[in-house]
């Protein structure tokens, strides 16, 4: 048994002339939460659906739990759990019936009560699916993804459309899955989600992986510091180290990899003018900044 749950080398997939995935490598270790993050159309869902066996790759080496998912074999499907990007559950069954139905598809399902409990739907057990809120349906979707007690769970944008409280709840649930020893491969376009959950983050853009590492490594790779203070003039008035500053909402914002020099110049410059740097703030770049820096305008 390989220690990798997912191993991908040189994966490519095109739809006609449109290249969705342009030769990517991924290594997901067993037992970790791995986040594939990128803007819409970056190739996240295509990648996931190839790993799930829903689509065939044009080229590349793909192993999921040491199996080629394109073979579509039943034994493989019993070992993975899938939550697709859009929730799709029969509307006229109850929560309990739906979970029971999917449990019936697997050789060694998790207990019914436990599944309903994990996703917090105890109070809605006998409700029809169509009477659930969007967030509740999504959680039911996760419950049926877990029905077969999978080794590896795919979650395609699990929290899109959730309110902040529901997202926190979903994060707790996903951390709980890791505690159960599951491997989780999720896609998201929220950097804070990747930061909160993932052991490894892979940033994908235009079908290519543009950065990968732990959240800390990614932050360190982009060792920028953001300096800002209240300023009404034009950037031409600022000293050389701050000449690339942007002026927005009455503040100057400077991204720099050498904050010591920049600050020294700025304080000298301010003292020389007999002014203070009002509202001065110095912060390390957030993962969000790293992400936006790497994915550019597409992410906005």
């Amino acid at each position: 048994m390989s220690e990798l749950a997912v191993e991908v080398r040189g994966l490519r997939k095109a739809y006609g002339p449109v290249v969705a995935v342009d030769g990517i490598d991924l290594s997901v270790r067993r037992g970790e939460i791995f986040a594939l993050i990128g803007p819409n159309g970056a190739g996240k869902t295509t990648t996931l659906e190839i790993l799930e066996g829903h689509r065939r790759a044009d080229a590349g080496h793909v192993r999921v739990l040491d199996v080629d998912p394109a073979r579509n074999d039943i034994a493989f499907k019993a070992r993975i759990g899938i939550v697709l990007q859009s929730t799709s559950i029969q509307p006229y069954l109850t929560v309990e019936e739906t979970v029971e139905q999917f449990r019936g598809y697997y050789p060694a399902p998790r207990p019914l009560d436990e599944l309903i409990d994990i996703v917090g739907l105890d109070a809605s057990r006998t409700k029809l699916v169509r009477r659930l809120s969007g967030g509740q349906q999504r959680r039911l979707d996760v419950a049926i993804g877990l029905a077969g007690d999978p080794e590896l769970l795919f979650l395609d944008e699990p929290t899109t459309g959730f309110d902040p409280a529901a997202r926190r709840g979903a994060w707790e649930m996903i951390r709980g899955l890791k505690a159960l020893g599951k491997t989780v491969l999720l896609t998201t376009h929220y950097m804070d989600e990747a930061q909160a959950l993932a052991d490894t983050v892979s940033i994908i853009r235009g079908g290519l992986i543009v950065a990968e590492g732990t959240p800390d490594e990614l932050r360190a790779s982009q060792a920028e510091t953001v300096i800002s203070f209240r300023f009404a003039g034009s950037s031409a008035d600022l000293p050389p180290a701050a000449s690339a500053a942007t002026i927005e909402n009455g503040r100057a914002v400077i991204h720099t990899t050498d904050p010591t020099t920049a600050l020294q110049e700025l304080t000298g410059w301010a003292k020389g003018r007999g002014e203070a740097l009002e509202g001065l703030s110095v912060t390390p770049a957030s993962l969000e900044d790293v992400y936006l820096g790497l994915t550019g305008d597409e992410a906005q």
């Binding site: 019993a78 899938i82 697997y106």
Partner: peptide
């Protein structure tokens, strides 16, 4: 309708033949 809602795809991802 089941196909368009993704219900068929959901089932296809399980071990149900």
């Amino acid at each position: 309708i089941a196909r368009d809602n993704g219900i068929l795809k959901r089932v296809r991802g399980t071990p149900l033949p």
